[in-house]
Amino acid sequence: MTRLWLRHEVRSTERRAAVVPTDAARLVAAGHQVTVERSPQRVFPTGEYLTAGCTIAPAGSWVDAPADTYVIGLKELPDEPAALRHRHVYFAHAYKGQRGAAGLLRRFTAGGGTLLDLEHLTGEDGRRLVAFGYWAGYTGAALAVLHLRGTLEVPLRPGSRADLDIALATPGERPRVLVVGALGRGGRGARAACAVAGIQPTSWDIAETSRLDRPALLAHDILVNAVFSTGPVTPLLTEADLDDPAGELRVISDVTCDVTSDCNILPVYDRVTSWQEPARALRRGERPVHIIAIDNLPSLLPWEASAAFSAELGRHLLDLDSAPWQRAARRFRTAVKENAHA
């Protein structure tokens, strides 16, 4: 029997669930013991998990779960306990030099636990097996268009795709949009949101970015970055580009939010934005440029994003000894060694 524990998300704006009730029921039927913590902001009511056959536990009680439990979440862990002894499945963002990564890895070392980072749950070809990319791209492009039109309501509040699409389809300016990473999950989502807004975006992928035409990039009103990078790359933009008097760029939507990483492809800003202030000015004056960089974008559409993600993750939770999980564990062990010698 495998013990799975769906934890409460400590971030107040996080409405998503890594496993939705219908997929939890499938895991229970397959013989897994599934415990779900109560969570006031999760979009799926606790009662639906109870009906699915799950055990319900108080928020934060995973710290006392049996040592062989797989603790499943999405975003960051709380600061305590200092030593992590379980196997944790979530997006840790800890292998590319991000802020706080070294301290997190030391917590796992101290407790003897294992990080199975969902960002590194991959197939033999190296492609990610589970991701929120499509809905991150969709919401990232949508917010950029609405902000440029002056119709973005803040603070942001979670809703449904239908509500967002109504706002996008309302007649308004049709800006020139460039989607970079257009063929990936995030890029497909961004292009879909543009279509709802009546916009035909320019679509760039590897071929176009390998011979980057910055004047062409700067000729757009909106840049949506959906490039997932695993190593240092040539920046899409520099500070000098933002000051180019010939540039037309007004809004940058960074879907990937690698701002504290060595792999940051947009080194023109130094911190993410928030639901309270989704767009922040990078340049003011006659031609202001704003950045949108919210690191849990898909939580604005929590039901749609969770359902799609859970369908992917649920299949892999059925067999936690499979090759993708073994690869994720090896990547963790490598990161721990690198951290110890840093």
Rank of each mutant, 00 (worst) to 15 (best):
L118S: 14
I56Y: 08
R85Y: 12
A323N: 06
G31K: 07
R287M: 04
W303V: 12
T334W: 10
R331E: 01
G159D: 13
A340G: 08
A144Q: 08
R157H: 14
D319G: 02
T2N: 07
L152S: 02
V268I: 08
E14C: 15
R287N: 00
G97P: 00
F309C: 10
L74F: 09
W303G: 15
V20L: 15
C257Q: 10
D79Y: 11
T234R: 13
L84H: 14
S322A: 05
S229Y: 07
Q33K: 14
T2F: 11
V259S: 05
P78D: 07
R330S: 13
G112R: 07
A195I: 14
L156D: 06
A83I: 07
D213I: 12
L218W: 00
V180L: 01
A323I: 09
A226R: 00
T234Q: 15
R271I: 04
S261I: 00
V89G: 06
Y134S: 05
R128D: 03
R271E: 05
C257H: 11
R38G: 12
A323V: 04
A102Q: 00
E80Q: 10
Y90G: 09
R87K: 10
A279W: 05
R333L: 15
L77P: 01
A141W: 01
A195W: 14
H8Q: 14
E76D: 00
G112D: 07
D125W: 03
K96L: 02
Y269I: 00
L266T: 01
D68N: 13
T2K: 13
A311C: 10
V34D: 02
R15T: 15
V19I: 11
A293Y: 05
H120E: 11
L218Y: 03
D241F: 00
I252W: 01
A24Y: 13
F91H: 05
E124N: 10
G126S: 05
S299M: 10
L282P: 03
L27V: 07
R26P: 12
R11F: 14
V336P: 07
S12Y: 14
T51C: 15
D241A: 04
S299R: 06
V336T: 01
Y95K: 02
L266F: 02
R7K: 04
V10C: 15
I252E: 02
A141N: 02
R315Y: 06
H316F: 05
S322T: 10
A226H: 00
H220F: 00
D221N: 02
L129C: 07
Y269H: 01
E80H: 12
A101W: 01
F108W: 13
G140R: 01
P278V: 06
E153R: 12
H88Q: 13
V227T: 03
R315L: 10
F332V: 04
S261K: 05
A169E: 09
V43H: 12
T109I: 14
D244Y: 01
G47F: 06
V227D: 04
L84N: 09
P232I: 13
A240M: 12
R185N: 00
S306I: 10
L6E: 07
L212H: 11
D68L: 10
G314F: 09
L313R: 11
